[in-house]
Amino acid sequence: MLVDSHCHLDFPQFGEDLDGVLSRAAEAGVGAMLTISTSIGRFPGVLEVARRSPVLYASVGVHPHEAGAEPDVTTNDLLMRARDPKVIGIGETGLDYFYEHSPREAQIAGFRRHIAAARETGLPLIVHTRDADEDTVAILAEETGKGAFPFLIHCFSSSGWLAKECLALGGYISVSGIVTFKKAEALRETIAEVPLDRILVETDAPYLAPVPYRGKTNEPAFVAYTAAAVAQLKSVDEDAVARQTTDNFFRLFSKASRPQ
């Protein structure tokens, strides 16, 4: 069994074929999927999708791109929505200094509010970070000093330094299809050094389809290709990666019910 720890099944790319997406995921051995909130405005749709199947779960959060558009979302707003049985994570949140679709100050303030929600609920914080390694680590370290909270870096594509710092803080690393890209040798070197018991796999669907589907619409079934790439990097068989990354997911996202 595999788990797609991060996808966006409420996005319009899946609106006409969600049943087909779920069927293909099952055929590929994907036994659970976490569909991710990017804004409070979109959250009802995320939750509606998660309620379509017992193997689907949701998060609640505001993507850093949307932090400027939803600056008034409070920690309490997140806590209230996190009470739903389907909501098993907080985010995605974090910092994106590559696009900077929202002011940095709004991103940082939102990031801290999400951390407070993760700390209070015990639900994992789902962190997006791009071109913001130093600020991301500084905030995670400072906030951890106020009280521990579980977290992962989703769609990891950054430096070995960021991986080491986040692992030292107790975080997990989620690997996407980027690890299969031809020019991602530096990322592969970093992931090769991350302990397997701290790795999750994801698609970030509909984005970042792995080789051999690069350029196509990504979907949860394709997480198998990412897991296969991790197996090659770790010199273990694909079943071992499937078992371990699934164990890691349900250890971290402990509110989710593991299929029997």
Rank of each mutant, 00 (worst) to 15 (best):
residue 95 L to K: 06
residue 78 L to F: 11
residue 186 A to P: 07
residue 186 A to C: 00
residue 43 F to I: 07
residue 12 P to M: 13
residue 16 E to M: 01
residue 93 T to L: 10
residue 143 E to V: 13
residue 100 E to Y: 00
residue 40 I to L: 15
residue 92 E to W: 04
residue 157 S to A: 15
residue 97 Y to M: 10
residue 68 G to K: 08
residue 13 Q to K: 10
residue 225 Y to W: 08
residue 135 D to T: 05
residue 156 F to A: 03
residue 208 L to I: 07
residue 141 A to G: 07
residue 34 L to M: 11
residue 67 A to R: 10
residue 243 R to N: 09
residue 18 L to A: 06
residue 40 I to A: 11
residue 22 L to H: 04
residue 77 D to W: 07
residue 126 I to V: 15
residue 169 L to P: 00
residue 81 R to Q: 12
residue 24 R to V: 01
residue 37 S to T: 02
residue 68 G to Y: 12
residue 164 K to H: 05
residue 74 T to G: 01
residue 1 M to S: 13
residue 16 E to S: 14
residue 33 M to C: 05
residue 193 E to G: 10
residue 227 A to T: 04
residue 184 A to V: 02
residue 125 L to N: 07
residue 201 V to A: 10
residue 200 L to M: 14
residue 45 G to I: 02
residue 42 R to S: 12
residue 192 A to I: 02
residue 196 L to Y: 00
residue 116 A to P: 07
residue 226 T to S: 10
residue 152 L to F: 15
residue 149 F to D: 13
residue 95 L to M: 10
residue 8 H to T: 08
residue 121 T to R: 06
residue 248 N to G: 03
residue 173 I to K: 02
residue 143 E to A: 14
residue 18 L to E: 05
residue 140 L to T: 00
residue 241 V to R: 07
residue 185 E to Q: 14
residue 134 E to L: 13
residue 137 V to N: 02
residue 255 K to G: 14
residue 219 E to I: 04
residue 156 F to N: 02
residue 258 R to P: 04
residue 221 A to V: 09
residue 163 A to T: 02
residue 122 G to Y: 03
residue 140 L to S: 04
residue 30 V to Y: 01
residue 83 R to Q: 14
residue 46 V to G: 02
residue 75 T to H: 09
residue 111 F to S: 08
residue 148 A to P: 02
residue 37 S to D: 04
residue 209 A to Q: 01
residue 72 D to T: 12
residue 50 A to D: 08
residue 108 I to K: 14
residue 250 F to A: 12
residue 249 F to I: 08
residue 164 K to F: 00
residue 60 V to L: 05
residue 135 D to Q: 08
residue 193 E to M: 14
residue 70 E to F: 07
residue 233 L to I: 09
residue 2 L to N: 06
residue 112 R to F: 03
residue 145 G to H: 13
residue 29 G to N: 07
residue 245 T to G: 12
residue 155 C to P: 01
residue 13 Q to H: 12
residue 169 L to A: 05
residue 157 S to C: 12
residue 163 A to C: 00
residue 75 T to M: 12
residue 174 S to Q: 01
residue 14 F to W: 01
residue 42 R to V: 08
residue 153 I to L: 15
residue 168 A to R: 15
residue 95 L to S: 06
residue 76 N to L: 13
residue 29 G to R: 10
residue 105 E to N: 06
residue 176 S to R: 00
residue 195 P to I: 11
residue 229 A to P: 03
residue 95 L to I: 12
residue 175 V to M: 10
residue 187 L to G: 06
residue 130 R to C: 03
residue 127 V to G: 00
residue 21 V to P: 03
residue 244 Q to G: 08
residue 101 H to K: 14
